[in-house]
Deep mutational scan, measured.
Amino acid sequence: GATAVSEWTEYKTADGKTYYYNNRTDESTWEKPQELK
């Protein structure tokens, strides 16, 4: 099967917290998305 390329990108805020942003859905989350686990 084809490997899905994750749409999630990991970013850090100014105070060093990590969050994740999805370019396709324009969604952001503090929790690590399922695709990255």
Rank of each mutant, 00 (worst) to 15 (best):
Y21K: 10
R24I: 15
K17H: 09
V5I: 13
Y11H: 14
T25R: 02
G16Q: 00
D15V: 02
Y20A: 00
T18K: 08
D15E: 09
T25D: 03
A4M: 14
K17M: 08
G1W: 11
E7P: 06
K37L: 15
R24L: 15
T25M: 02
Y11T: 06
A4D: 13
N23L: 09
T9K: 12
T9F: 09
K32H: 05
N22D: 02
Y21E: 05
W8R: 01
E35P: 04
Y19I: 10
E27D: 04
N23T: 14
T25Q: 02
A14W: 04
E35W: 07
A4I: 14
E31F: 08
K12A: 06
D15P: 00
Y20S: 00
L36E: 08
K32S: 05
G16L: 01
K32P: 09
E31R: 04
W8G: 00
N22E: 03
W8E: 01
T3S: 15
R24F: 15
Y19R: 05
W30D: 09
P33A: 02
K12Q: 11
T9Q: 13
Y19W: 11
W30Q: 07
Y21T: 04
E27A: 04
E31Q: 09
G16D: 04
K37Q: 15
S6T: 12
Y19H: 04
E31Y: 06
R24C: 13
W8A: 01
E7S: 07
K17F: 06
L36S: 09
E35I: 05
S6Q: 11
A4S: 12
N22F: 00
K12T: 14
T13D: 13
E27W: 00
A14N: 09
N23K: 13
E27L: 05
Y20P: 03
T3H: 14
G16H: 02
D15K: 03
T29H: 05
T18S: 11
T9V: 15
T25V: 01
S6G: 12
N23E: 13
K17P: 01
K37N: 13
S6M: 08
N22W: 00
Y19G: 05
Y19K: 06
S28A: 12
N22P: 01
Y11G: 06
P33M: 02
G16R: 00
P33V: 02
Q34N: 14
Y11N: 05
K37E: 14
T18P: 05
Y19S: 01
K12W: 07
N22G: 00
